[in-house]
Write a protein that binds this DNA or RNA. Structure first.
Lengths: 128, 128
DNA sequence: TATTGACTTCAAGCGCGCTCAAAGATGTAG
DNA sequence: CTACATCTTTGAGCGCGCTTGAAGTCAATA
């Protein structure tokens, strides 16, 4: 997280105005750092800024907003689960395609040059 | 995938100019569809367009580019693995935080109103 | 015949999340 | 005292991946 990003997060209300040293420089407390860690974790898993803003807003309103905050997090967790699934599918597909490329390469090595004919048409087989 | 996105992909070279009906309308073959499925799968796992362009370019050059294409896919697969890890971490964190919110809610219900004092400071505990 | 509707083209616009530029204040080293 | 680095502010700019708009062509339907 760059300094610029921290300023940006402060500007858009993701973090409350943070404490300052006598010279005006920002001093991030442990609590600030922990909150930033959390934000970072949410961003890294594609939570939109708007949603993080909503969460930050609720958090500032205290325990009464617990239920809504929980729902927000549950929604995001569901998003995460969906993302994991898509990623795992793609991972498996790539394993397949990579193996395929190894076969092609072996064939080329065996022929001593690049054969003209045998394009192993992979898309129809692996897109499924 | 919208029609607009298909046009866009064609414009930026992700798909070769596709066949046309007599009236000039595009006709996507099975092979086109399979290739589009693959592209869709890569985009859904955050492969940048530039990388997909590179892959498409190599693909058009035939089997001789097998090795480079394989490396490209291997890199992306590594990216995917990293993403999965981050997502799983976040998923676990959220499980923790959601459980925490349930406790808070239970406490509120038990008190019959929102207590003023006991803000359960969660960030330090769960950000780790 | 008139009117939809789905396609075509090309260019411009947009939302997101930063990212950078410019100008100025302050602190540390030589 | 002079550099130089590091922070401060505000506002503008940018890269990505679409997305939309405008204007036109064609096919079928009321």
């Amino acid at each position: 997280m760059t300094a610029h990003t921290l300023r940006y997060y402060e500007r858009v209300g993701l973090i409350q105005p943070v404490g300052r040293a006598r010279n005006g420089h920002r001093r991030y407390s442990e609590a600030d750092a922990a909150w930033l860690d959390f934000l970072h974790c949410m961003r890294a898993t594609n939570m939109p800024i708007r949603e993080m803003q909503r969460y930050a807003e609720l958090r500032e309103q205290g325990d009464a907003t617990s239920l809504e905050r929980r729902k927000l997090l549950e929604d995001h967790q569901a998003e995460i689960a969906a993302q994991i699934e898509a990623l795992q599918k793609a991972h498996a597909l790539l394993t397949h395609k990579i193996a395929n490329y190894r076969i092609i390469e072996e064939r080329i090595r065996a022929a001593g040059s690049v054969p003209v004919e045998p394009e192993l048409e992979d898309e129809l087989a692996t897109a499924s």
